[in-house]
Amino acid sequence: MALNTNFDEILEFPCFQTFKVMGVADPSLSEVVISCLQQHAPGDYSPSIKQSSKGNYHSLSVRVKVTSKVHMETIYTEISSLELVRFVL
Score class of each variant (00 low, 15 high):
residue 83 E to S: 12
residue 12 E to W: 01
residue 27 P to H: 06
residue 9 E to I: 04
residue 36 C to N: 10
residue 31 E to C: 04
residue 3 L to S: 08
residue 77 T to R: 12
residue 56 N to T: 02
residue 63 R to E: 14
residue 27 P to C: 03
residue 33 V to N: 07
residue 47 P to A: 05
residue 36 C to Y: 01
residue 45 Y to R: 00
residue 37 L to D: 04
residue 74 T to L: 11
residue 26 D to F: 05
residue 47 P to G: 08
residue 46 S to C: 13
residue 54 K to F: 05
residue 35 S to P: 08
residue 77 T to P: 02
residue 71 H to T: 07
residue 33 V to E: 01
residue 12 E to Q: 15
residue 18 T to C: 11
residue 10 I to F: 05
residue 2 A to M: 14
residue 61 S to V: 04
residue 6 N to M: 07
residue 35 S to E: 15
residue 4 N to D: 15
residue 27 P to W: 03
residue 9 E to K: 15
residue 23 G to E: 03
residue 14 P to R: 05
residue 70 V to Y: 01
residue 80 S to A: 12
residue 33 V to D: 00
residue 2 A to G: 12
residue 39 Q to A: 15
residue 64 V to K: 09
residue 70 V to E: 13
residue 26 D to T: 02
residue 47 P to H: 01
residue 17 Q to H: 13
residue 80 S to H: 02
residue 78 E to G: 01
residue 72 M to W: 11
residue 72 M to H: 09
residue 63 R to H: 11
residue 77 T to L: 11
residue 85 V to Y: 00
residue 49 I to P: 02
residue 58 H to N: 10
residue 10 I to P: 03
residue 43 G to M: 00
residue 37 L to E: 00
residue 65 K to A: 10
residue 30 S to P: 10
residue 4 N to C: 04
residue 30 S to F: 01
residue 60 L to P: 04
residue 43 G to K: 06
residue 68 S to D: 00
residue 2 A to Y: 12
residue 50 K to E: 13
residue 60 L to G: 05
residue 27 P to N: 06
residue 71 H to F: 00
residue 32 V to C: 09
residue 57 Y to A: 10
residue 57 Y to V: 05
residue 56 N to K: 13
residue 62 V to Q: 00
residue 80 S to F: 01
residue 77 T to N: 13
residue 23 G to V: 02
residue 38 Q to A: 07
residue 61 S to Y: 10
residue 84 L to I: 02
residue 74 T to K: 08
residue 18 T to V: 13
residue 51 Q to G: 06
residue 11 L to G: 08
residue 13 F to I: 04
residue 22 M to H: 10
residue 71 H to Y: 03
residue 59 S to R: 01
residue 22 M to A: 00
residue 2 A to P: 15
residue 64 V to Q: 01
residue 76 Y to W: 10
residue 49 I to S: 08
residue 8 D to N: 10
residue 40 H to Q: 08
residue 49 I to H: 05
residue 61 S to T: 10
residue 69 K to S: 14
residue 49 I to C: 14
residue 70 V to T: 08
residue 14 P to T: 04
residue 29 L to Q: 03
residue 75 I to H: 03
residue 36 C to P: 04
residue 64 V to N: 06
residue 44 D to K: 13
residue 11 L to T: 06
residue 30 S to V: 12
residue 4 N to S: 14
residue 70 V to K: 12
residue 30 S to D: 05
residue 83 E to Q: 12
residue 73 E to N: 14
residue 23 G to M: 07
residue 53 S to I: 03
residue 11 L to P: 03
residue 27 P to G: 04
residue 37 L to P: 04
residue 84 L to T: 04
residue 33 V to L: 09
residue 57 Y to N: 00
residue 34 I to Q: 05
residue 68 S to L: 09
residue 77 T to A: 07
residue 52 S to H: 00
residue 20 K to H: 01
residue 61 S to E: 10
residue 79 I to G: 07
residue 42 P to G: 03
residue 20 K to T: 11
